[in-house]
Design a protein around this nucleic acid. Sequence first.
DNA 1: CTCGACTGGTCAATCGATCAAGCAGAAGGG
DNA 2: CCCTTCTGCTTGATCGATTGACCAGTCGAG
Lengths: 351, 351
Amino acid sequence: MASTNGRRVTLKDVAEKVGVTPAAVSMALLDNGRISAEKKIAIRQAATELGYVGSSAARALRNQKTNTIALIVPLTATHVFGHSYFTHVLQGVTEACNRRDVQTLLATNADEAHGLAAYERVLRGNMVDGAVVTSAAITDSTVQRLSQGGVPVVLIGNFPYLDEPVTVGIDDRAASALATRHLLEVHGRKRLIHVAGPRDHQTGLDRSLGFADAVREAGVDEGSLIVESDLTEQGGATVIDELGSRLADYDGMVFANDDMAFGAITALTRLGIGVPTEMSVVGFDDFGLARVVSPGISTVRVPVEEMARDATERLLQIVDGVPGWTRRDFDVQFIARESCGCSATETPREL
Amino acid sequence: MASTNGRRVTLKDVAEKVGVTPAAVSMALLDNGRISAEKKIAIRQAATELGYVGSSAARALRNQKTNTIALIVPLTATHVFGHSYFTHVLQGVTEACNRRDVQTLLATNADEAHGLAAYERVLRGNMVDGAVVTSAAITDSTVQRLSQGGVPVVLIGNFPYLDEPVTVGIDDRAASALATRHLLEVHGRKRLIHVAGPRDHQTGLDRSLGFADAVREAGVDEGSLIVESDLTEQGGATVIDELGSRLADYDGMVFANDDMAFGAITALTRLGIGVPTEMSVVGFDDFGLARVVSPGISTVRVPVEEMARDATERLLQIVDGVPGWTRRDFDVQFIARESCGCSATETPREL
DNA sequence: CTCGACTGGTCAATCGATCAAGCAGAAGGG
DNA sequence: CCCTTCTGCTTGATCGATTGACCAGTCGAG
């Protein structure tokens, strides 16, 4: 429990106490067969008494394996995604890591000062065995280099422009079309606005394509509009303010995420435009916000936590050299709440 | 940029390319004075060309310093605190770490299977130079051991039972009294209920003491009630359901956090009890939820992000052996919204 | 001309854990 | 009785980066 008079307890200390060499102690603790049962017991006991905890640095150096993975959140993504997305990812990643007794390193900064993104140094410096990368900008070449640079990487999101990435994601295009069709078919809306996310993220691109698909199929693409915003609550409100009187020409809005939808609903309410009566609204993500606000935001639930867990598990497999899937798509679910015109009771209280 | 035919690039590779010893390369990259300017340039150039990134394991072993700190979230706390608290802490910690080019390791599991909390192994195994520990249960002896075990630790919260901890926190008791007095003095409420958090966390204890202080001062302690719940939204709703008809005897509620307040407001509304008209409600924390729901929840804003940043900065100082403060208390702010009876306009839209 | 002080490196040890190879002693087989 | 095979440990090298000790050459002062 206590360390030998303040200094760190090493294999050598344990070895001396038992009267063997450090090598023997190492073998005993690793349950290597070449150590006798009695000595193993004695060694383990001594190790416990001294409070021996192996040096992770030494082990990492020797084994060329750190038992740590990184969760990489490119700076751009930190801005782009709200708090809650991140939390869900983290939950999934740490859960998978804990199960395998692997540590999680969080890499968020793109420290250009040193000419190398900090997370690239983390990976290349063998500080981790691999990384889960959350949806990065299309323009981020680091992801490209990493996924080819020998470091095992699993990406969350869609990366059609990468060579042979291992990814887990959802079909954003189909999901967005699904949400759009809900407004068209269930609520009979005909003049829709899509508020897209930044086009330098694949997600923004795909969700807007899905919207376009749906309105085209329905033959109402002429009367529809696509604008772009920044995925923030403020951004959603700004869109409403900027559209102003033109809003009268539309009866439904499909947002690329819930934050914007929420900001927009607040702004619409302020303008006296009823949601869902005059303007039917759907969001995207369902990371938490959509459920608690009023009116509840109808949205597409993206199972980020499961995705992150799966991504991590696959990563750990890859690190271990286990072959497996290269692409996993998760199903999404449309969650009907009030903002589209569905009754609240369709979704029973879920905590 | 590329690694030498797949293998990792070491000092030796760079040294060979330039025609010097690894020692010289090391010194050059560390800008040691004993290397000539020309050689430094040549070495740096070669290092860049080869894409040299030092091995963090080797460096950690040699320097006995990992340039990594852990953010420890004892399992109990993960349950107790909602998502948003965690996100704020993380934001603060990573921000401070990034500024100093230090990595952040996330340790959340209390893996009893191995007889030692995983985060204790992380610290004792010198995987990190120190740790920021988020508010742990009073009963968690690991925190006690860690804060005495030679590993630099900074705690977020109040730990009166620890010997000489370095902590950053708020005065929960005074803050809770502040919120309570708001209901008493500004809104003239006289029969209050306090819904406390678990008593095995100092925060739960202190906030309930603050409530007691305020009602006693006001001479309305006779008519007041304290119940305990679990800090969840569901818990808040359950409290309301269980109190049932007894709620008619009260006109105000002080919750130990916003999640419970939200759950309670939803339940109260369902019962036809008007908030704030019949029941004036205040929450605690202001981590996000309180602002977005309707009615907006009046609450005490706890500046977790700043606290976490400060804690991390102090930790890094301690790691460097810089003397400094041992206890830092942050000011809190009462945020008036609708749930207590104040008008919403008192808090202009803040995003 | 010689001694001390620089300059610009090189050498070798070190940080701890691991493992292939080695080696002493006992046991077993012919 | 000698030779092989185990068993159970020890030796020594290794993983990369760092740094104190050392050293060859140069320069300036006395």
